[in-house]
Design a protein around this nucleic acid. Sequence first.
RNA 1: GCUGAAGUGGUGGAACUGGUAGACACGCAGGACUUAAAAUCCUGUUCGCCUUAAAGCGAGUGCGGGUUCGAUUCCCGCCUUCAGUACCA
Length: 931
Amino acid sequence: MDYQFRDIENKWQQFWAKNQTYKVDNASDKPKYYVLDMFPYPSGAGLHVGHPLGYIASDIYARFKRLHGFNVLHPMGYDSFGLPAEQYAIQTGQHPAITTVDNIATYRRQLDQIGFSFDWSREVRTSDPEYYKWTQWIFMQLFNSWYSRELDKAQPIEKLKDHFKTQGSAGVFAVCDEDINTFTAEEWTNMSEQTQQTELLKYRLTFLKESTVNWCAALGTVLANDEVKEGLSERGGYPVEQKKMWQWSMRITAYADRLLKGLDVVDWPDPLKEMQRNWIGKSIGASIKFNVENREEIIEVFTTRADTLYGVSFVVIAPEHELVSALTTPEQKADIDDYIAKTKKKSELDRMSDIKTVSGAFTGTYALNPLNGEKIPVWIADYVLAGYGTGAVMAVPSGDQRDWLFAKQYNLPIIPVIDGQKNLETEADPTKEGLYINSDIINGLTYAEAVPVLVKKLEELNAGKAKVQYRMRDAIFGRQRYWGEPVPVYFKDGLPYLIDESELPLVLPEIDKYLPTEAGDPPLGRAADWKYKGTYAYELSTMPGWAGSSWYWYRYMASPEDRKESVFAPKQAIEYWKDVDLYIGGSEHATGHLLYSRFWNKFLKDLGYVNEEEPFKKLINQGMIQGRSNFIYRVLNDDGGDTDTFVSHGLKEQYKTKALHVDVNIVENDMLDLEKFKTSRAEYSTAEFILENGKYSCGVEVEKMSKSKFNVVNPDDIIERYGADTLRLYEMFLGPLEQSKPWNTNGIEGVFKFLRKYWKLYHNDQFEFQVSDAEPTKAELKALHKIIRKVEDDVERFSFNTSVSSFMICVNELTDLKCNKRSILQDLVIVLTSYAPHITEELWTLLGNTEGTLSFAKFPEFVPAYLVEDEFAYPVSVNGKMRMNLTFSLSLEPADVERLVLENADVQKYLAGKSPKKVIVVKGRIVNIVV
RNA sequence: GCUGAAGUGGUGGAACUGGUAGACACGCAGGACUUAAAAUCCUGUUCGCCUUAAAGCGAGUGCGGGUUCGAUUCCCGCCUUCAGUACCA
């Protein structure tokens, strides 16, 4: 039989499912290997051809590791809480749980068709109460913990209570809110329960915080900054207002340093690590206090250049700074109010695009330089952000470009502080090179000498201290939405308390519709009689999307049997699987999921539930698959009106035309299928065409893959036409895994032809299975061992595209050699099976092996001896230009090669009678003659 | 603006440690088989010049320099595209 991919693929997919071929045990003598994919959100649209790219790569890797004797954990699941299902519910009234289950079924069907070796018995769904029970449980652990700076790890809140009881607040060195109180042990004991709880909340790793949010009343939800465009919601364009709201927050800042340090030990792409570093944004500097002339107030600034303190010629505070009104003199009040009103009107976008012009207003008061007592004016300006540092800066125009621009604008002095500063007339110079000038106690010193002198002086004056500042803020952990994990908290006397652990999971209640209540409460406010112990109000917000995905890789470690136990994953399983060896997913999760996951992992480690400081040892970002749109060109008449005629791409310049997207599925190699086009829509049935060489050629553009651009390619269609093995190989063949590229089905025929040619190696001309037991030749062994080595190398460096090319070369060679030797072809099955598991399973069985054992066969060992050559065709270059190949024995020494080359008649021709200046011979590589 | 990645034939891409640039495919052109088409197979295909042909000559990896016997690869400067980030003191 010819290669019947449909029958073969169905047969083996059923076999694997029925025999649970890829179900993995938590106990094994084999070494473990954990290959993880970022699990998908099951959207209603199903998978398009870009989604499986990373899954195919990880599946090849997982299969490859199995062949190398590893016990491989390779699971899959669904990140099934999320907005689209809820949005759909609002529109249709359909419960999100129902849509979610439907969508998951579609995803599962599509994934199964591709032949992945997932252990489905370990599937997780974040919206399943049996799963989110543990998400809620982790939340409770966070609530019951605080972060000790002394031990640099999270501690049970009980320990903090004990400390308060015995020593009061003295000696507590914690990451906490800023408004904590100091008290003695006795005062603590005498506090009311309520006061104690209020105080403890300031230390808990998850806590309530009043924060400003982008509230969209029309959508009934809080929006992220990037969902707001020019004061309107990105979706729908409804007005968005700033609203203060009590929200759950996660004290991720406690882990900032450890999150930073961990980046040095993980094997991740550098750009991704860089993104996380920027996001955390650690800067080392000092906080300095400026007294204000004739006033009580003190302005505290953060600076990374305390060494330039003598160059400060003004102080700038953010317009939103709490001291603004206190510092404004009556004479300046009108100016300041005016300026504040103006900045409020400016949208984020304006503030960003307006980077070069600076503006501000003078408060009328003066601060005093702590070192020399000099009077410096206090200004407000919107280039200083309220949210970063202290919301105030000391302006050094000679060293900072923004300060320089501001000084120029308002005619403030620009004082040079280092003799190395140049061109201060045209711009600021932030150099640290040179010796200090105009700087009193540090005059004549270098940067390295000056800093300790200054720090000491500031500390003596009690005017400043070294400080580390982070850009990263605590993460808001609440959404005013329905389709998410309920927060396991109830309120008593206005204070939050955890529900009893035995009440987990706290299941999402049913509600009548998925909208906020009339009172503006989140949808959960609609749940009837939803009270803890029938009395206390539950928290009405739900957890954000990242909650469920911040620990899911541990749930996969729990086998179905383990899941009956009352832990998120049993101790022995965590000890065996430890961490994720290889994690593949998109770089869009760089600063969200990948940061939160590391945070929760470190927290769980602090409490002793898991063992590794970093959860994902190696990480690869697969590139995005973009869409490749095709266009047709409608000819317009003289009035610019539509005609029924379409002109081919190459001739369109001769007409007035309008470009239209055309469905890529009726285009092949950029040529439009005219019949399919005419029947695709009623309005096209009478279409006429102006053709080139009898064909209609379409225009091409790379865009996002989306329905509206008619460029979505569905894997189902590809599989229907070519099979899953072809899809897998082709996705890899498309180019390097990490590179983004447009999907283009044009080349797929080549891969399909390759598989048919491969199939033919094992069959005679009548397509009967036929292999010979004859001894392989040297050439056949060479072809085989070349591919063995190539695949070993390529898979280990995730260069899957080059392997596919090499498979083609190997099959071409074996075809030319007319090789049908069992000893060669059986090993070739094992080498190819990670990439094309179905066709190889079929051939493995035809070769007489036991069904289903291929996945656990032993990868053939590379024998270098088969590749050893005794001759080499030296490329001979003259002045670096390749001229000819000359073949010599590899046993010849360079001197002999040189002699033989120079004797050669063709070489003599290039020398034109002259003797060469120099001859370079690299054994087994090249000969270069310099004339 | 800053940070990062990438620019190679008509197209996707290969060249792993500085050593034959364009592997492997797609497309295209020509041919075989066929009444015909599909499928399949064979040949050619970086560009330019020259040639009946064999062969030959020149240019060539975004642009301009440099190091080297030799550079797609290393160094310096620039241009373009994509991604992330947004006045972070």
